[in-house]
Design a protein around this nucleic acid. Structure first.
Length: 565
RNA sequence: UGGGGCGUCGGCAAGUGGCAAGCCAUCGGUUUUUGGUACCGACAUUCGUAGGUUCGAAUCCUACCGCCCCAGCCA
């Protein structure tokens, strides 16, 4: 790890400082134990990556431990499919958990704690309807009123609660509530529900339970049982902290975890809500959770985004309590930065234009050696076949060369990367006036792309030998939404989907060495961007995903030139 | 008429009474067989606003303003 990464990692944030102080002060005996507690009801996305980096990162930094705990207290939406996907995504990011637990492992223990609360007179069975409970809770302006069942005897509560567990009642008939304070300013403290009846098959406990604990009750117990020290979560749980502390204090558990909240990640031009992401999948706006347009980790993996880029990005955005929208360009920068370091270089032409080298022998070929990485010779080289007919990028030719144009135009000389210098003599067009072929001559003395007499050739183009080219489908991805905040105002986020978030191009031409690149591996198509091979590829019919474009300073310059006249 | 948070450059974000880090973006320039990369330079006399305390305030006090979260038998 470089020093710059170290200093980045060490950047100050309030959680790191708090933990450092705790360790120094000997709190919990200097121990640090965190947890990442996803609910297995959806796939992980980049927002979760931030939490993962914080939870695992803090533990690692202070020599502590981090548990992976599936928070499966609501069987309605939870499935094993998600459990597997979550494990895979965390591993992919490069983190390893010290223990793997399920909240459902503690159901019996949680039940015992509830019985304890009842015995202590701190919990009661409420038999009001959902509506009555809601009404009795009051609102921001109106204090709540005590439930008529609040004063039930311990014995009656015990009996009712046992029968709830036994399945004697239907959902909605009774709930278990904590007896705290119906007048509390914090609604969460107005006798919060601890258990509800749910006659649902659980993905792990099957039909063993007819009652399931609520998050506010279960989570602190899970943390306490695992002897978690720092329970890190997002801002919306701040209001729940008093209840969290109440549960830890009033239940017979030895752990003394403390909850600290930080702002969740919001990224521009995308969404970070599991529910809405699921909607995109279910309504067919995308092809699935792993669609490369999705901000899910599985989507990013398929898109070719390296996990290291995600982790580095998370380290850079920092941790604070302010909610804001992180500029997507910061993420894009991290992706390019990582890919630039590790991606081997190849050439491919997205929109081919035939170029014939008139003074090159009809039936001859030759090969050039080209490095796979311009800054790291250890990557080695590959052979680049070359011949009389090649393809260049249509965008690299202009009939009228604009100012500062370094590329092809009638009469202009350019370099074919790693091959030679060619000059455009003649432009062949069809009846409609479309350019169909460029006729050029090459300088045989320029083999390898050097200029024999030291003449300056500013333009260097990528190219592919027509005779040896692989044909491919390339999928070009762009932002999922057209607005930085897709749900600005009352907007339905679906109305702001970017129709061009995926553009599919057929008939792209790739250099033959690309045939051996494996699915998922990222590489650069020189001068265009970073790509990877999609699993949809078939033998001899590669499908490429464009992960991200290269920065394009020419596009910027051209815009400026046209604006300035 | 409640409770909980947050306001430092266009975006993230350090800073914890001693004279505003860093990253991204943007704008210049150097190098370059990727108009890529790398490198160099510019970029907050000012910290939501107004008062106050102090030799000294983004940091302390007061008031005001703005934004976010909470009224699931979701997590």
């Amino acid at each position: 790890m470089s020093t710059s990464e170290r200093s980045e990692e060490g950047a100050s944030n309030f959680i790191r400082e708090m933990i450092a102080a705790d360790v120094e002060g000997g709190k919990w005996g200097g121990r640090v134990h965190t947890r990442f507690p996803p609910e297995p009801n959806g796939y992980l996305h980049i927002g979760h990556a931030k939490a993962i980096c914080i939870d695992f990162g803090m533990a690692a930094e202070f020599g502590g431990k981090c548990n992976l705990r599936f928070d499966d207290t609501n069987p309605i939406a939870e499935e094993v499919e998600y459990v597997d996907a979550i494990r895979r995504d965390i591993e992919w990011l490069g983190f390893t958990w010290d223990n793997e637990f399920f909240a459902s492992d503690y159901f019996e223990r949680m039940y015992e704690c509830a019985v304890h609360l009842i015995r202590e007179g701190k919990a009661y069975v409420d038999s009001q309807t959902l509506e009555q409970i809601r009404e009795g809770r009051g609102n921001f302006y109106k204090p709540g009123v005590d439930s008529p069942f609040r004063t039930r005897s311990v014995d009656e509560n015990l009996d009712l609660f046992a029968r709830m567990r036994a399945g004697e009642f239907e959902a909605g008939e009774h709930v278990l509530r904590a007896k705290i304070d119906m007048q509390h300013g914090n609604l969460n403290m107005r006798d919060p529900l601890l258990y509800r009846i749910l006659k649902q098959t659980h993905h792990r406990t099957g039909d063993a339970w007819n009652i399931y604990p609520m998050y506010d009750y279960a989570h602190p117990l899970e943390d306490a049982i695992e002897d978690i020290t720092h329970s890190l979560c997002s801002l919306e749980f701040q209001d729940h902290r008093p209840l969290y502390d109440w549960v830890v204090e009033n239940c017979p558990v030895e752990g003394q975890p403390e909850q600290t909240e930080f702002a969740r990640l919001n990224l521009g031009y995308t969404l970070m809500s599991k529910r809405k992401l699921l909607q995109l999948v279910n309504e067919g706006h995308v092809d699935g959770w792993d669609d490369p347009r999705m901000p899910s980790l599985s989507g990013m993996r398929r898109r070719g985004i390296p996990p290291e880029a995600i982790v580095r990005f998370c380290e850079r955005i920092g941790v604070s309590k302010r909610d804001g929208i992180v500029d997507i360009s910061l993420f894009e920068h991290a992706i390019r930065e990582r890919l630039n370091e590790v991606a081997p270089r190849y050439m491919g032409v997205l929109n081919p234009l035939e170029l014939v080298i008139e003074n090159y022998p009809e039936d001859e070929d030759e090969e050039f050696d080209a490095p796979l990485h311009p800054e790291d010779a250890a990557y080695g080289t590959r052979k680049l076949p070359f011949g009389r007919v090649i393809y260049v990028e249509r965008d690299d030719f202009r009939m009228q060369a604009p100012r500062k144009w370094h590329r092809l135009a009638p009469g202009k000389e350019v370099r074919l990367r790693y091959a030679c210098l060619v000059t455009c003599n003649e432009v062949v067009t069809d009846e409609s006036g479309e350019v169909v072929q460029l006729r050029c001559t090459w300088d045989p003395e320029s083999r390898g792309g050097t200029s024999p007499d030291g003449r300056k050739v500013r333009g260097t183009l990528h190219w592919v030998s027509a005779k040896h080219a692989l044909s491919a489908e390339v999928r070009l991805y762009d932002r999922l939404f057209t607005k930085e905040n897709p749900q600005e105002g009352d907007a339905d986020f679906r109305d702001n989907l970017n129709p061009d978030a995926r553009r599919v191009v057929q008939g792209c031409k790739l250099e033959p060495a690309l045939a051996s690149v494996e699915v998922g591996a990222g590489f650069q198509l020189e001068r265009i961007g970073y790509f990877c091979v999609d699993p949809d590829s078939a033998e001899g019919e590669p499908v490429l995903n464009r992960t991200i474009t290269l920065r394009d300073s020419w596009a910027k310059l051209e815009k400026k030139l046209s604006k300035g006249g």
